[in-house]
């Protein structure tokens, strides 16, 4: 490791300052504020507050709706993560077969990444649109009347489907570049050693993709839990009602729509703890393995 020499001991501090202040202003400070207000019962405008200790948390844990939303969030996160990774990988493997080495195709497919997210959101809404959305009609064809925003399970399904869809291109690109960086000679050595192409995939290619897959696993969990806010808000048209939603959306609903700042803060603190756990898990695993070369 190379050590840079600074003439003044304040120089490195000065250079770090912008970064540190951004982290402080946009992360530590609000986090601390949230932690503090989670111990208060606040009036809707946040002017006055009564210290209530852990009561906000206790209320949450006794609230059956919060439990229901937690369960939905779990189902949502697991399915979105699993299916968007699975589809991303599947498409990448198929594409890799075709475009090995042909960089023009690769560039074309990269565009999907740039275009997909915003378009996917809007397309998603229209696909599940009541009455004449494509998927709504498909369900109708099989005798199921699909009513988004009314039927809990239909809405949950639509949320999950659109969230998966939005994430697939990103996973696809990462998996594809992972696949393309598996050296040709290793694949060829495997072709001589193993007749079955699916066998080769699971014993050679997939383990070599593990670092990519692991990175994507973490980003996808984070995505499913936090970055799906926009999709959910668009799909529910800001009418949460009795519809399924994730814990993150619930924070917004309670805090900004319901005016329960204390309860909402308690929820954010719980989410922060979840993120912390996820981060620890990630570093533990990275420390342990998954870098060859």
């Amino acid at each position: 490791m190379k050590r840079a020499a600074f003439s003044s001991p304040w120089m490195p501090v000065l250079l770090l300052l912008p970064q540190v202040s951004i982290i402080f202003v946009f992360f530590y400070w609000p986090a601390f504020e949230a932690l503090e207000s989670s111990f208060y019962l606040q009036d809707p405008f946040g002017f006055t507050g009564t210290f209530v200790g852990f009561e906000n948390y206790l209320t949450l844990f006794q609230n059956s709706e919060y439990l229901r939303i937690s369960i939905f969030t779990l189902v949502f996160t697991v399915s979105v993560t699993f299916f968007s990774l699975a589809f991303g990988l599947l498409f990448a493997v198929k594409a890799d077969k075709v475009i090995r080495g042909a960089s023009t195709y690769k560039t074309l497919l990269m565009w999907v990444y740039a275009v997909a997210p915003p378009v996917a959101g809007i397309l998603g809404v229209s696909l599940f649109y009541q009455g004449h959305g494509l998927i709504t009609q498909l369900f109708g064809f099989f005798g199921h009347e699909f009513v988004i925003g009314v039927n809990y399970y239909d809405t949950g399904f639509a949320l999950i489907a659109v969230s998966i869809w939005k994430q697939v291109p990103i996973n696809f690109i990462f998996f594809l570049s992972g696949l393309q960086s598996v050296p040709r000679s290793i694949r060829e050595a495997a072709m001589i050693d193993n007749r079955s192409s699916s066998g080769r995939f699971w014993t050679i290619t997939f383990p070599l993709l593990a670092p990519t897959a692991f990175f994507l696993l973490i980003t996808n969990i984070t995505y499913a839990m936090f970055d799906t806010f926009g999709v959910i808000d668009v799909m529910l048209r800001s009418e949460p009602g009795n519809n399924p939603m994730t814990l993150t959306y619930k924070v917004y609903v309670d805090g900004f729509r319901g005016g329960d700042l204390g309860g909402s803060s308690a929820q954010s603190v719980i989410l922060m703890l979840l993120v912390l756990a996820l981060t620890i898990f990630q570093f533990r695993l990275i420390e342990r393995r998954i870098h060859y070369t």
Binding site: P183, I186, E188, A189, A190, I192, R195, I204, Y292
Partner: peptide, 27 residues
């Protein structure tokens, strides 16, 4: 290739990086 009863040694060795030496040979 797997059915031709051949074995090949590559220029950059093409060892399976995630496997031990034993498993590389046993694969």
């Amino acid at each position: 290739p797997a059915d031709r009863d051949i074995a090949m040694v590559f220029q950059n060795y093409a060892l399976y990086p995630h496997m031990t030496v034993y498993n590389n040979m046993a694969y």
